[in-house]
């Protein structure tokens, strides 16, 4: 009996410790609030509140940075980011997820949301991306070009055809007349990239910006046709946004100066 009691006490202790730690970790935001105290956050009419943003997986690094910078200049806006495959994000929005802003990695997925009438106005294109052929550092599979995606002896990862990176991969390989023999279909671009950085696959088709974000863990094999497969990234405020003014401020940050700089640094083409 004492054994069980000790176990419960230990478990409770661990849970409380983790709880405290996780809340203290969130304390970074609290200190931001303190420094932002000089800014007159309580001016009437200033956009404020929590803005939930669903964004394509390939926007992970850039949107995180944009949100950090926005939080510094607008501490009264709290941004909650969630990343995933665009097609799934749209499904979540259509299923009624409490979301204020949606940013997808191609026009086709955004069109689905527009057709369903859940957007507040039109979507704005804020960036563009091109596909990239990536291999683990050192290129263990000896990949020389797009046609190596057909090699049976290599482990190949491509995205699902319905997610943007998969659609882009399909356009690229069709254009080049290559028929890939994938070993797995990744659910989003970051999963495909992770398989390359882990060295579990020899080659994958991701976006140029993902190759940039992975740094030295991957190498890019140049593909001539990649430049002609351009993916536009649209962003839109949703009709049921609870904080429309704050949501529009976030979209303005993405399409404006902060966004343009951060996105360019991440390797996006900016209109």
């Amino acid at each position: 009996m004492t054994g069980v009691r000790t176990a419960i006490v230990v478990l409770a202790g661990v849970v409380v410790a983790l709880l405290g730690w996780s809340w203290l970790g969130g304390g970074d935001d609290g200190s931001d609030d303190a420094t932002g105290g000089d800014v007159s956050a309580d001016d009437d009419g200033r956009p404020a509140g929590t803005v939930t943003v669903l964004a394509a997986a390939s926007l992970t690094e850039s949107f995180t940075q944009i949100s950090d910078e926005l939080a510094r200049s607008h501490p009264e806006i709290e941004i909650v980011l969630s990343f995933g495959p665009s097609s799934q994000l749209v499904e979540q929005v259509l299923a009624g997820a409490p979301v204020d802003v949606l940013a997808t990695a191609d026009m086709a997925t955004m069109a689905k949301a527009a057709d369903a009438g859940v957007l507040d106005g039109e979507a704005t294109v804020f960036a563009a991306n091109t596909p990239a052929l990536v291999v683990p550092a050192g290129n263990p599979g000896g990949v020389a070009g797009l046609s190596d995606l057909e090699r049976e002896d290599l482990r190949v990862a491509v995205c699902e055809p319905h997610v943007p990176c998969g659609a882009a991969a399909e356009r690229l390989t069709t254009l080049a007349g290559v028929e890939p023999v994938p070993d797995t279909l990744a659910t989003d671009v970051k999963e495909a990239l992770a398989l390359v950085t882990l060295g579990e696959v020899d080659v994958a088709l991701v976006f140029h910006t993902d190759a940039v974000s992975a740094g030295e863990a991957v190498e890019v094999v140049p593909v001539e046709e990649a430049e002609s497969v351009v993916n536009d990234y649209p962003v839109a405020v949703l009709e049921r946004a609870r904080q429309p003014a704050a949501a529009r401020a976030v979209v303005e940050a993405v399409t404006g100066e902060i966004g343009r700089r951060v996105l360019t640094e991440s390797g996006f083409l900016v209109p």
């Binding site: 495959p85 097609s87 799934q88 499904e91 990862a157 699902e160 319905h162 997610v163 994938p182 070993d183 797995t184 279909l185 990744a186 659910t187 398989l195």
Partner: peptide
């Protein structure tokens, strides 16, 4: 991973379908 016929079992197929 998830590849039809090789590794995509029923639950994975359902997940791919909803996606």
């Amino acid at each position: 991973g998830s590849l039809p016929g090789t590794t995509r079992t029923l639950p994975l197929e359902a997940y791919a379908a909803i996606g």
